[in-house]
Write a protein that binds this DNA or RNA. Sequence first.
DNA 1: GCCAACGTTGGC
DNA 2: GCCAACGTTGGC
Length: 139
Amino acid sequence: MAYWLFKSEPDVWGWDKQVAKGEAGEQWDGVRNYQARNNMRAMKLGDRGFFYHSRTGLEIVGIVEVCAEAHQDSTTDDERWECVDIKAVRPFTRPVTMKEIKADPRLAEMSLVNNSRLSVQPVTDAEWQIICEMGNTKP
DNA sequence: GCCAACGTTGGC
DNA sequence: GCCAACGTTGGC
């Protein structure tokens, strides 16, 4: 199983809205960046991801699961853009902030740290474990 | 609200 | 196919 990180702007689509969608989940639409789209194409059913709040939160607030593999983004007719569906799994016991992530040398390779503009990113197994521990949350 | 970093566009 | 100009993102 692979791990990922999804960035949201909480003003537009935050963790609470994601939780409200329940088991059905919701498509992660609106991505208009090839690298981010390619990451979504690589996702498999059951893959897990961190749910990150950018701009007004700057912290990882929860864990999500891919509940539908890549398909056409229904918010556009442009066939280039695809997205997956994700559903909330559990919130972080304690959110892990960008500050904490930046302060840990083991996490220095994360895109979140060195390519802040990529909105859908891969996360390694090791990074996943470390961040879950930091948030006192079951992986 | 500012601005650096990055991705995309389009003229040549 | 290069690269300058432009638009967007996101941390601060």
